[in-house]
Amino acid sequence: MTKIDSRSAAKLKTIGFTPLIYCSDNPLFHVSRNVPLVDALSMASDFLFLAKGLTQDAAYARDSDRHAWAAHYLTQMGKALVDDVVKVLEPAPARTQAEPKK
Rank of each mutant, 00 (worst) to 15 (best):
S24I: 00
D25S: 07
D25Q: 10
D25P: 00
D25G: 03
N26V: 11
N26P: 00
P27E: 04
L28Q: 13
F29P: 01
F29M: 09
H30F: 06
V31I: 15
V31C: 02
S32E: 15
S32F: 12
S32I: 05
R33F: 01
V35D: 03
V35K: 05
L37P: 02
L37E: 03
V38P: 00
V38Y: 11
V38G: 03
V38T: 12
V38C: 04
D39G: 02
D39Q: 13
D39K: 11
D39R: 08
A40I: 12
A40E: 09
A40Y: 05
A40P: 11
L41K: 06
L41P: 05
S42K: 12
S42W: 02
S42T: 11
S42Q: 09
M43I: 06
M43W: 03
M43Q: 10
A44H: 01
D46Y: 04
F47P: 00
F47W: 04
F47D: 15
L48W: 02
F49M: 05
L50W: 02
L50Y: 02
A51N: 01
A51P: 05
G53N: 12
G53L: 10
G53H: 08
L54I: 02
L54N: 06
T55P: 00
T55G: 01
Q56Y: 10
D57Q: 13
A58Q: 11
A58F: 07
A58D: 14
A59E: 07
A59F: 08
A59G: 10
A59L: 10
Y60S: 14
Y60K: 13
A61P: 01
A61G: 01
R62Q: 11
R62N: 14
D63T: 13
S64G: 04
R66I: 15
H67V: 00
H67R: 04
